[in-house]
Design a protein around this nucleic acid. Structure first.
Length: 154
DNA sequence: GCCAACGTTGGC
DNA sequence: GCCAACGTTGGC
């Protein structure tokens, strides 16, 4: 079992949106970055745990936990000409973009802000706290996962 | 294959 | 809203 962190703009899709979705499950569509695509297509497994991160908001940070419930499969929004994430270079016979399904597990007792995460030397290797990093799906080590969870009750 | 131009991400 | 950082595109 592995750990991940996924970024979402809460104005588009928030942890509350996931919690109120049917079966508290939704697909993670719209990722158009190869590194993130590779992770979703090749690496994420059912049962993996995911930190749900809110970006581009007043207090960016980790707000909850989700779980992978379906392995990588083609992102159909890339085939839809009306979808904002439509990509003419992806076709159903040879899909370029992939997504996974995740299910809501719980919200954290409080938001663990990016500012707070940046202050932790234990987390300095996380891509998240690196300047200019734009990766929207990234691995989290078991140590980082436990450390971040330990911050929740502080 | 290089690299300038452009578009996007995302913190602030 | 600004802009730094980065990925992608396309001309050559």
């Amino acid at each position: 079992m592995q750990y991940w962190l996924m970024k979402s703009e809460p104005d588009t899709f928030s942890i509350d949106d996931l919690a109120s979705a049917p079966n508290q499950t939704d697909h993670w569509d719209g990722v158009r970055n190869y590194q993130a695509r590779n992770i979703m297509r090749d690496d994420m497994q059912v049962g993996d745990q995911v930190f749900f991160y809110h970006s581009s908001t007043k207090v960016p940070g980790i707000v909850g936990i989700a779980e992978v419930v379906r392995r990588g499969y083609p992102d159909h929004t890339a085939f839809d000409t009306k979808d904002p994430h439509y990509d003419p270079k992806s076709d159903p016979d040879n899909p370029r973009w992939y997504m996974v399904d995740i299910r809501f597990v719980r919200k954290l007792a409080r938001t663990i802000s990016l500012a707070e995460l940046k202050e932790c030397p234990d987390l300095s290797d996380m891509p998240l706290v690196r300047k200019g990093n734009r990766l929207s799906v990234m691995p989290v080590t078991p140590e980082q996962w436990q450390f971040i969870l330990s911050l929740e009750s502080t």
